[in-house]
Design a binder for these strands. Structure first.
Lengths: 195, 195
DNA sequence: CGCCTACTGGACCGGTCGGTCTAGTGTGAT
DNA sequence: ATCACACTAGACCGACCGGTCCAGTAGGCG
């Protein structure tokens, strides 16, 4: 066979980028095709289920990529609070670098399509679950109790802060939120958490 | 004049509902018109700037409505932790009642359009700012220091929890998050907050 | 070599999009 | 009574949507 996955990969990466910036419904297949220099026939050959499949795989791809970057960032931290701050720095940096266009690669598509497409909802769910899994393990490894629930809290507050930052065009809220959540998690790790 | 604002109001309310459920790009003007039984001419008479103006006003309207409901719910609380829990209950209830279709009336539109339309971004910003203002006053009134930053944290974690709940089709995360954030805020109010 | 198949290339489809335009209509003021 | 104006009504527009179809092509394999 030829370069087998070349076109497929190119189309998928292009789509992932566009979905992240513009969302699902604002991204046309013609735009994906033009930007990845692929003809329509190739798209439907590689993604026979069409746009829905493309989006589900794109979410999985960019979710996985970001998950790896988060894992790498966290590995350099000395503890939960610093880890959470580093994740915030990473996300804030991406946001600023892209002029507030590139937020969470999952959130926009999730809000748009989770209610209308089960495959897409499920892909978003899986992406978040994978991040949560990594986060939970990390927290547990650092002596944090109720690690699952705290991971939910960390992810929730990060996602919300990312949303507010995009709306405000100001990343301040990300740092403010991660600082407080980091402190809360560290307290819990030291066993003096309340409630 | 005739019933002056009748059609305008009906179109706007219909649009607000559809934008909340489906988002900005998935909602067609024809759908809004059909559901509100208005002709296209009326839409462009009342909203000369077209879909963008309609969305900006819809966000303001549903943001204001939800803000009032939140204010009413909070008024029944005995303190910050309970207030936050009641807001979570309210949002979780809406989500379940609508089979996870009606989340935050601002978030989806914000993520879709904030990067592409300044009027819409600004309307979303204003809606959040208004909620934050109410929340900040409430917290300050209950002896919470750094009320602005904590209000940001409360709103962020709520928004993120709402997103996760929609993706999971399970409101558990909302209650889990509000419980923890409520405890954190109450601690801060009692002056024993850390960091 | 020639064949099979994985893949490309793009014309084409019906439908819907947001938006424009122009008649018509009912009502309150004069 | 009639006129001005706020508003309705919907036909119509070009652009673009996601999706289908099929003719071509190029490489690995007999």
């Amino acid at each position: 066979m030829t370069r087998r996955n070349d076109t497929r990969e190119r189309v998928l990466r292009t789509a992932a980028g566009l979905f992240q910036r513009q969302g699902y419904n604002a991204t046309g297949l013609n735009q994906v095709l033009a930007e990845s220099r692929a003809p329509k026939g190739s798209l439907y050959f590689h993604f026979p289920e069409g746009k829905e499949q493309l989006a589900a795989e794109a979410v999985a791809l960019s979710g996985g990529d970001l998950g790896e970057r988060i894992t790498a960032a966290v590995a350099a931290a000395s503890g939960p609070a610093e880890a959470i701050a580093l994740i915030g720095d990473l996300l804030a940096h991406d946001l600023e670098q892209s002029e507030f266009q590139e937020g969470c690669p999952v959130a926009t598509v999730a809000l748009e399509a989770a209610g209308a497409s089960e495959p897409i909802r499920s892909a978003c769910d899986a992406a978040y679950a994978s991040w949560l899994d990594g986060l939970t393990r990390y927290l547990r490894g650092h002596g944090v109790g109720e690690a699952e629930a705290l991971a939910d809290l960390v992810l929730s507050s990060l996602q919300g802060a990312l949303l507010l930052a995009r709306v405000r065009r100001d990343t301040g809220v990300i740092h403010s939120v991660t600082r407080r959540i980091g402190a809360l998690v560290d307290d819990t790790a030291q066993g003096k958490g309340s409630a």
